[in-house]
Design a protein around this nucleic acid. Structure first.
Length: 259
DNA sequence: TATGGCCTGTGG
DNA sequence: CCACAGGCCATA
């Protein structure tokens, strides 16, 4: 599920379901999810939802007193919304709202995280600018890469540098920009960073466009390089390569993407 | 900067 | 059985 476009869709779905409703009850259904401070969670019960929105790869549900429920899907989280109180498989948390609205956090791996930021508390996440923020330009992005000798692929995954790019779209964006995934981030020319930002927006826009349409495109149909090891590059026809960087798979074209 | 851990599931 | 999974954090 969760890179920026998917989290964005989830947050919109959540907002449509719960905005204006009152939280009636919360229950946690898996020990790993119980690491959240339950007293804080309970303090949300009885409050009305002002809005739900995406912030980087987080979702924030703002309540009337200014308290905020913070949710991160990690690898496999998602929402399930229904009018009945029967939970779906892998339901890890249950939120009951007024008007017979039930929301489940569904997460097979149970890696998702819940948190509560009470009114007046500072936001401690030091996330960088949002990848889809139109105000972000290539000059700013290049400034954020400056001094980083690590591979651009890994720097793209650093949410403090740029928020919202994950493992799939990092590969996709680098392919679009024709940049070698191991290139040192701080050495990229202005022109290359400009291409990279274009590539990031291109990959994200494609994913946004996919949301409304057939949810079930296969990976090979949806992506240009991700999960396409050995298949032909759609630009030059040579076989897509897979390498590992920082314990994560990187997919790229040896011919199109030069150092 | 690398490594392991968190969790469960799927596919080779 | 093993490798791997769209994320992130703790630790040395």
């Amino acid at each position: 599920m969760p890179e920026l476009p998917e989290v964005d869709a989830a947050a919109r779905q959540l907002d449509a379901a719960i905005r204006g409703r009152v939280l009636r009850a919360v229950s946690l259904l898996h020990p790993a999810i119980r690491r959240v401070d339950e007293a804080r969670l309970s303090s949300l019960v009885g409050q009305r939802v002002v809005k739900a929105a995406r912030v980087a790869k987080w979702q924030e549900v703002t309540f009337e007193r200014g308290d905020v429920l913070v949710v991160h899907f990690r690898m496999t989280g998602d929402w399930a919304v229904s009018a009945t109180s029967a939970g779906p498989p892998h339901a890890r948390a249950h939120f009951a709202f007024s008007g017979r609205c039930h929301v489940w956090l569904v997460d097979p791996r149970a890696l998702a995280r819940l948190g509560v930021r009470l009114a007046g508390e500072a936001d401690t996440s030091r996330a960088g600018p949002d990848a889809m923020d139109p105000a972000l330009d290539a000059t700013q992005l290049r400034a954020r890469f400056r001094g980083r000798r690590a591979a651009i692929k890994q720097v793209l995954l650093d949410q403090q540098v740029l928020a919202g790019v994950g493992n799939i779209y990092a590969s996709e964006a680098l392919w679009h920009a024709r940049i070698h995934p191991a290139a040192p981030a701080g050495q990229l020319s202005a022109a290359r960073v400009a291409r990279l930002l274009t590539g990031i927006r291109w990959a994200m826009d494609l994913a946004f466009a996919e949301q409304g349409r057939h949810q079930y495109g296969t990976a090979t149909a949806r992506f240009r390089v991700y999960d396409r090891e050995g298949l032909p590059c759609e630009r030059c026809g040579s076989a897509i390569a897979r390498t590992v960087q920082g314990q994560r798979s990187t997919y790229w074209c040896r011919r199109c993407q030069r150092a």
